[in-house]
Design a protein around this nucleic acid. Structure first.
Lengths: 224, 224
DNA sequence: GGAATTCCTTGACATGGATCAAGTAATCAA
DNA sequence: TTGATTACTTGATCCATGTCAAGGAATTCC
């Protein structure tokens, strides 16, 4: 367990001693594909870490439309907001494939923060990074059109995966459309246009970037 | 100065001694209406507090369109993200009226956090609250239409101002349209429709809520 | 207090993208 | 492997909201 915790950025710089305390209060949860980890409005009495698998954090509209806020893979933590703010979860979380999740109960963790200076700073950095990401997401949703959002997403993938020219979609196109705030139909049509303009080549879950600069332009301003 | 700091939620629960240390490193800045406090991309070597006036934090698109992320009045802090994350400002900040702003330099503040347990927790709570607000803003932009966003905004104002039935717009309608992600023309038209449906009455900067329940419905689901 | 500026409203029109529907491809399960 | 289920594509249509333009109200500034 301690080895697992060491790999998590949030806990970097902590002593074995502290990690041991954390390991002691953590529990392991298993979820099948589609399993709900928590629902918007639930009382949050702890937070979570992905050990294996993939998780989406999302909101549903009144009519059932979904907006994905984050997709998290191994090593990422989520569900912190109610831990520090006291209220309930502002969004829901679901495993989008068979996943193993660690759970850290709130109270034990809060007392750990005050006694572990580095942990507090790590958390502040982590929440700040998330605020920055939301800032970008709001910019994308409000100031950019779908082709710009989609190419920005492909470029993000290309940076995440070392594989600079050939990227693999980690989620279905339906999920992708909910992440960038559009519909599967529109994703399909825009990918086709991008292919027609020789920016990319698509084969099922693989996208080959043919014109990196063109994609970059499209992600910043342009339309197709 | 210490009296000013006491009024700020972020510093609640801190001893006079700690407040004195903070007051010692804080400086006062004056801005006219339209004065830029910082630009997106600037290196952030500290954060800010509104003492008097109003500030908007916003992003500009390539084409010059604006999306407002926050409007802050007296007592609110802003610009923390780079303090804890190290990089630059993810957005810009401008005084939208003559304002007095306190500036807290980064380095002195960071060392203060490690030596002041309560301050770290206050900051975590503050950033968490902001994450929750962004969550709602993303939901609004992506899952709701303009009439729902506008009525949600009016309801928020009504909660903020004790004045339950009669609210005063704290910003121009042009700014309001940039806050809810639309245009002045659309705001104008939607307010008119809401007036025609007897939900509200508008007179310049004042809105009287005639049908609270109807507004609530509209903010959650409906269209006009 | 009146001119000048800024802000707001209204109308006509254009359009990005949603929705509905039907077919095709990919994946899963037995 | 094959049938069944789920995911994706393509076309036709519709609608909310953006854009452009012009007139009207409110504020600001000498």
């Amino acid at each position: 367990m301690i080895e697992k915790l060491k790999a998590i950025p949030l806990f970097s710089g902590l002593s074995e001693d502290h990690l041991e305390k954390i390991a002691f209060v953590a529990t392991t949860l298993n979820f099948d594909k589609g399993g709900m980890i928590f629902h918007e409005g639930d009382k949050g009495n702890g937070f979570y870490m992905v050990e294996k698998g993939t998780v989406k954090v999302f909101k549903l509209s009144f009519e059932g439309k979904e907006q994905i806020l984050h997709i998290y893979g191994p090593g990422h933590t989520f569900g912190e907001v109610p831990v520090f703010e006291g209220k309930n979860f502002p969004a829901s979380a679901m495993a989008i494939e068979k996943s193993v999740i660690l759970f850290l109960p709130r109270e034990k963790f809060v007392s750990l923060i005050t006694s572990t200076p580095g942990l507090g700073m790590n958390l502040l950095a982590d929440l700040s990074r998330r605020l920055r990401e939301f800032t970008i997401q709001i910019e994308n949703l409000s100031l950019k059109e779908v082709p710009a959002r989609l190419s920005a997403y492909i470029l993000t993938l290309s940076k995440e995966q070392k594989n600079l020219k050939k990227v693999t979609l980690p989620i279905s196109k339906a999920q992708l459309s909910n992440l960038i705030g559009t519909t599967p139909e529109t994703v399909s049509r825009v990918l086709k246009k991008m292919t027609d303009s020789s920016l990319i080549e698509v084969q099922t879950k693989t996208i080959v970037i043919k014109d990196m600069e063109g994609l970059q332009d499209l992600s910043e301003s342009g339309s197709l």
